[in-house]
Design a protein around this nucleic acid. Structure first.
Lengths: 103, 103
DNA sequence: TGAACACTAAAGTTTTAACTTGACTATTAT
DNA sequence: ATAATAGTCAAGTTAAAACTTTAGTGTTCA
């Protein structure tokens, strides 16, 4: 399980949150991911490292292109934290959801 | 609905997240809430203002004591954001949970 | 083989957020 | 009335993130 602090800190930044949102639709290369932002590619790479450490994305390099995709572990950490703070009903349903998600 | 940015930014700080976690159990005064932290009351007050703006807590002053309690709107914002990024199964169950939560 | 491409590493700068200090208000207790 | 409590305001400091620049690696294309 991913550290809660890393997940919330990662999503606390607007650029990183936007990256995760864009990856919800489809995987993207670092360059494509960087396009909308007015910052260097280096800065984008730093953001991606933080997102990856938080288990929110996975990346793999093929040739010279690194492809980034949304990852579950970070989202699961977030879901667990949330469940502990919501109504008993929501908690039970979240637990059921986790059960049904398993392979 | 609360702004997503405010909620994530609020929970991105370890002290604020700890405050929310402690308020999950029971409401607390500003002083009681401040006790475990090695920082001024002023700093605690600043954190509380951010949490309140994010809809994660509500506060009300009675006499000279301000009591802080966990609030739903911020958590709901978080739940909605999460639901959009998790598996279809988890999404359906979250929606069902929201339905059953209603009065 | 050489040039353009897609990134990456190290180190420094800038910007933002957290926290402090000192002074102050309103409420409760003596 | 006085003093202690509980919190607040404004302004400044400090510490942590975000971002840049420069230089470099490995990969693909002409």
């Amino acid at each position: 399980m991913i550290d809660t602090a890393k997940v919330f800190q990662a999503l606390g930044d607007a650029t990183r949150r936007d990256m995760v949102e864009r990856l919800t639709d489809a995987p993207l290369s670092v360059s494509k991911l960087a396009e909308p932002y007015a910052m260097s590619l280096t800065a984008v790479g730093q953001h991606l490292a933080i997102l990856e450490a938080a288990g929110l994305i996975t990346t793999q390099k093929t040739g010279r292109v690194r492809t980034c995709a949304l990852a579950q572990p970070g989202l699961d950490t977030l879901a667990d934290w949330l469940a502990a703070r919501r109504s008993p009903w929501a908690q039970k349903l979240d637990a059921l959801g986790d059960m049904l998600d398993e392979p």
